[in-house]
Write a protein that binds this DNA or RNA. Sequence first.
DNA 1: GGATTCTGGTATACAATATACCAGAGCTCG
DNA 2: CGAGCTCTGGTATATTGTATACCAGAATCC
Lengths: 251, 251
Amino acid sequence: MSQNDTKSQGASPRRKASDPANDDTPRLVIQPIDTSFSFKNKAYAALKNVIISMDIYRSRSDIRLDERQLAQDFGVSRTPVREAMAQLEREGFVRSVPRRGVYVVRKTKEEVIQLITAWAALESMAARLITQTSTNEDIASLRRMFATFEGGEVRAHLDEYSDVNIEFHQAIIRMSGNQVLIHLAENLFTHMRMIRRKTIGEKNRADKSIRDHMNIIESLEARDTARAEVLVRDHALGLADHVARYADYLD
Amino acid sequence: MSQNDTKSQGASPRRKASDPANDDTPRLVIQPIDTSFSFKNKAYAALKNVIISMDIYRSRSDIRLDERQLAQDFGVSRTPVREAMAQLEREGFVRSVPRRGVYVVRKTKEEVIQLITAWAALESMAARLITQTSTNEDIASLRRMFATFEGGEVRAHLDEYSDVNIEFHQAIIRMSGNQVLIHLAENLFTHMRMIRRKTIGEKNRADKSIRDHMNIIESLEARDTARAEVLVRDHALGLADHVARYADYLD
DNA sequence: GGATTCTGGTATACAATATACCAGAGCTCG
DNA sequence: CGAGCTCTGGTATATTGTATACCAGAATCC
């Protein structure tokens, strides 16, 4: 990619870089620059990550994001922080109260139930698709996710199981191969993850969860389309039912 | 750092974030954003790295940096690439020929000898300072750099030795603790590194090199200021002598 | 109840980058 | 050998991202 000569040095004719007569000329190997980098994008990703990692339902007090303080913490001006929060607001993670501040959004119980119901629709269709199009290796990878818990030691490793639980549901959507489903699920997924992480430790749900998961995997392995759909949908709706009955902190 | 309430939710008075009555409110932990990131800076670092990693003396043909091609490879516009190359030119790594292109600079033999001589002045003074101010642990870390080569297996691991060789000289400057020395050496260092990497495999210099290094380390350990200075200076000037005699590719 | 403080909102300035166009130099072809 | 074409660096202008200053509403404090 580099041409070889200059008039100031002998005026030999230029040869194309690919010219084989020139094989020993050192060549540059250049990696692309990450052009998605911007202060706004970094602030957005960091704030989103912080919000979804919090247990925002542990307390009922409002969580306000102070844009001057955040700008100082990030080491940038208020402008990219404001733009990041505007995007988070568009996506439903925060809400802005004029001249009052920006607050992390907690969903009501009713909103959560609706969200889970929509998720169930997407996930159960994804399960159907998996039985029809995925490779045996793909499906096997789902089972391998739970290898650590084969001895039933779910409660002893609840945090780890919580992570695997979330990854499992994400993998089902992804494995469907349907880009529209995947896209629709993306935003719902973040909210679902917060809910799952909160509820997994309640009422020994983890024990039931892994039994459900094993049944789901068996139905996928058997390529039983109807059964996989029902098991996945019922599993998700079981979460909605649990929320309806026990999640008083969502009111 | 987050305030807790909003008028729309009960008009309770704002409390300071540090208010101990509010210990369970989730808190945000925010990492600063790297504000040195820019396309120009990334392009500059990448090009500099590529240039100093090349064996630019292996071929005599000119190495021209094609700014449109680089912009395409980096995935950015020509503007940051141009600015990066302008900075590289200011630092002596490339030169721009109006309406002809930007070329990697090769130094002449005479320039290289002058550069090494200047480096020798800096490094020998650094050695003096080390014998007077550095801790035993610091000096011991110099010896540990060569632990891998204690069996004399230098030629078998020439690339690795070349890297350690460069690190050793860099560490001497750094260990002096003199910020002016360190700063002056910074730009020289990059050119020196290219020369050292090129010459280390010539005329079995690696064997002599490690003997010299051991002698230098012993004089540092003995806190022998005059001897350390002489050994370091002679070692560097030995490189200049080698270049004068054998480095025909620099003409 | 007025002064002060704190916060979001907005306007303007500045820096980084993208893109289009120009002009010089070299190459190609007839 | 000269005209036309191509390739390249240089420059001007536009756009986007960001910084900063100032404004105004709301809450707090004395």
